[in-house]
Design a protein around this nucleic acid. Structure first.
Lengths: 194, 194
DNA sequence: AGCGTTGGCTAATCTGATTAGCCAAAAGCT
DNA sequence: AGCTTTTGGCTAATCAGATTAGCCAACGCT
């Protein structure tokens, strides 16, 4: 009988896809093995265990997210770039809730951890986007953290069913992007002090 | 030998405290039982299982959070109330990371679920805070979702070690509160359209 | 003191992750 | 093609943690 021909990357991608379908919390080695047409212990030839699997999914997710944001903001600046990047991120999370959750559960182990690099790429994407607003160097990091907090918070609340009122979530998201845009633009024209 | 005298509430509180100490992910029935000086199966006389335990922790957490925010904003309005509420929430999460994580993992089961009521109380606290800004009725829900997204996002990113740069997280938080305040106040004076 | 209820205990069961050890398929060599 | 080494899949165990079954003393009440 021929082998299944798995690789760490294939197991990771299948795990991410399965998490998106059934939810991060429901993901387990047995279901993943079944999905890959293989017995559970075989997975251990490619990933060292569940923790490793989640870590790999997290790395892949961070890289996909970074690419998504970069591509969306490519060729745009200021308000346009913010809106495009924000929508791209939200769409990504809505389409890949399982891997996004896995990504949030993982924590980089150190400077050499590929997850550190991948997370850095996401940061770079947002940093590049913010460059379109002329923000003082001392405030740039705050603005970056603000944007990350807002979008991460919105995405997780939405993914967890945190928005119950019947006002369309879509409308709130657009409103929020506008809110951030106005605030960021006012930073350009009127620096806090100088 | 006398009984331990546990109750569902005592088990819940101990579980929340333990989660805060060792981390939500490390919480398990065995450790909790040990902490309570009881054998694992005894816990099942008070909670139906781990899911029930987490759910109860989530309810307690939401209620504590609602109280914390309400108390902090009591007697304040506008910028003051926002700053006080935001800081109170951040402090609460920093002091109770485990139960906050448990709270985020739980999902209300329905309209009668006490978690629904508790979550509603948190919403009410923020809604009351926002009343200090004269925001148009049609925008109030967006502003509420914005504030929730921002604070939830910031708190979870901080709790997960998401802010690496050496700029003090504290400074960014204050900056972000200011950012929200300016934006919210500009809504009062200049409604989007009318 | 007597009686029903309750909360804790031990022993057993179950599920899911992980490890041990075997063996054939794949890959490389001559 | 035949020989050898490496590798990836499998079955059978092992382990950890959650949960259930069933027993019995402690508690609250009369």
């Amino acid at each position: 009988m021929p082998r299944a021909g798995l690789t760490a990357a294939a197991v990771t991608e299948a795990g991410a896809a399965l998490a998106d379908e059934i939810g991060f919390a429901q993901l387990n080695m047995g279901l993943l093995a079944e999905r890959l047409g293989v017995r559970t212990p075989s997975l251990y030839k490619h990933v060292t265990g569940q923790a490793d699997l989640l870590h790999r999914i997290a790395v892949q997710t961070a890289n996909e997210m970074a690419d998504t944001i970069r591509d969306a903001t490519q060729g745009r600046a200021g308000s346009d770039a913010l809106a495009a990047g924000a929508h791209a991120m939200r769409t990504y999370v809505k389409e890949h809730p399982g891997r996004y959750a896995a990504g949030n559960a993982a924590r980089p182990a150190g400077p050499d951890d590929p997850l550190t690099a991948a997370a850095g790429r996401v940061l770079d994407s947002w940093t590049a986007m913010l460059r379109g607003y002329q923000i003082g160097a001392d405030e740039e990091i705050h603005a970056l953290r603000m944007v990350r907090s807002m979008l991460h918070g919105f995405a997780t609340l939405e993914a967890n069913g945190g928005f119950q009122m019947d006002t369309p979530v879509e409308d709130s998201f657009t409103w929020i992007i506008d809110f951030m845009d106005h605030g960021l633009r006012s930073l350009e024209s009127a620096p806090a002090d100088e």
